[in-house]
Design a protein around this nucleic acid. Structure first.
Lengths: 249, 249
DNA sequence: ATCTCATACGTCGTCTGATGACATGGTTCG
DNA sequence: CGAACCATGTCATCAGACGACGTATGAGAT
């Protein structure tokens, strides 16, 4: 909370320009601004629209192709795939790019993990409780050494899923992996001036609250603590997103 | 069917160079040639390896990033993501066979749909409410004609998922499909002598309760009504399972 | 001798310009 | 009137350059 190290840096770089452009295009496609059929502007047009070079535009489009959202025909243009509304995958994590996506995913996680925490409190074994405890310690340890402790964070939540003794909670959480933990996807520099410390300490305290409730097999408190934890994450993320709506054109 | 315009065209161009390079890299990652951790060569190295320009190499890597297979750190290099082992599908529905499985899945659904009902109450549009209403009517109609109204049941729940205005709830529910509605999986003859009537009338009443709460935008009541609905389903199923342990595979 | 700090280097991110390939439509010639 | 040809627009790829970021190495101080 010192050192005004930001003298004059108008060059905000959340993640990468290509990522930003891709997010923007994805929003416009999902929002119906670009409808199925031929719509996408040509590369030179996008260059001026987004204010970036052709390299970036091409990279963004390339990713959209990989996601199957658009299709490019040589010498003709780029088109929105009509089959966008029939997802072959149950949950397509490859399109999880915009802040809006992450917020929605977080909403789904709130739903699942709140319940999971409640079930875990009732059904946990002592070994599982011990594993959660170790994950919390590892998290704290990592934070104190300046790390983000993503793995420990993941482990903690996974242990809760395991403690439900319901295979599907575990499967689902494994599937999501670490890709839905906000700070793995979004540049933490978007957050407060001290991105790591205070943010991660709060997270750690919330983890401890959840752990305590599960330890004393208090199902309702565990649910409530988990809901609070993820809701806080969501609010932090939402605020970060509002602070910089995007498109600095 | 046309002219033999192919005199000597060794220039095979299946799709695009970037696509080819990406496939090559993906094979090498899957084949273990590039193991989790730091492995991928630098961009200049890939250029000579693959005999293409940096543009192509970068585009290929960019797609791998979008797929979540690799992670690039500015100024350092590109690394294979260790979490590649997350299953391609979140939940294996093909193993949903025993009563125990269905009960567990129902637990997951309780978690999701309880939350979804609450969100739907807050965010629904009038059109969506109308759709839910129609689904309930169709359900009743079907029951009165001796059917099981599985489709109408599914529609009702799906409309709620839609009304959350969160794509992931919808995607997830569509993925689950009708396979998790107990009576589509389990022989109804397990139930009482009058399998349909009383059971389905109860279901219908519960649907109406949910609908009412959503109609008046009462989020908490909607959640509670949904939880009660699915909990009742679970209890009915559990009782049926106990009455006849299993068999009749 | 060890620790600290500053600089150098490797690597990725982005920009710019240019050339070739593909598809389409208009023009010209038979 | 029809068919071949060419002009245009667009994407695909190449090549070179510069800035930004992290790490490692070396010089200096204690």
């Amino acid at each position: 909370m010192n050192t005004f190290k930001v003298p004059a840096l108008p060059r905000q770089r959340p993640v990468s320009l290509a990522q930003e452009v891709m997010s923007d295009l994805m929003d416009k496609i999902r929002g119906g601004q670009y409808k199925p059929g031929e719509k996408l502007p040509t590369e030179p047009e996008m260059m001026v629209e987004q204010g970036v070079s052709r390299t970036v535009v091409r990279e963004a489009i390339s990713r959209l192709q990989a996601s199957g959202l658009v299709e490019t025909r040589h010498g003709v243009g780029t088109f929105v795939r009509p089959s966008t509304n029939s997802p072959a995958y149950p949950l397509d994590l490859s399109t999880l790019v915009t802040i809006h996506d992450v917020l929605n995913m977080l909403e789904l996680r709130i739903s699942l993990e709140t319940e999971a925490a409640g079930l875990a409190a009732m059904r946990r074994t002592d070994e599982q409780l011990q594993c959660m405890h170790e994950a919390v310690l590892a998290f704290e340890e990592g934070v104190n050494h300046g790390g983000m402790s993503i793995e420990a964070d993941y482990q903690f939540h996974l242990q809760i899923a395991l403690a439900t003794h319901n295979r599907y909670f575990e499967d689902f959480y494994r599937y999501l992996g670490t890709s839905t933990i906000p700070r793995t996807r979004l540049d933490t520099s978007q957050f407060s001036a001290e991105p790591g410390k205070s943010y991660l300490f709060s997270t750690n305290r919330e983890h401890e609250n959840i752990l305590d409730a599960i330890a004393r097999q208090d199902s309702q408190s565990a649910s409530a603590a988990m809901r609070m934890h993820l809701s806080n994450s969501r609010e932090r993320l939402k605020r970060a997103g509002e602070a910089r709506p995007k498109n600095d054109s």
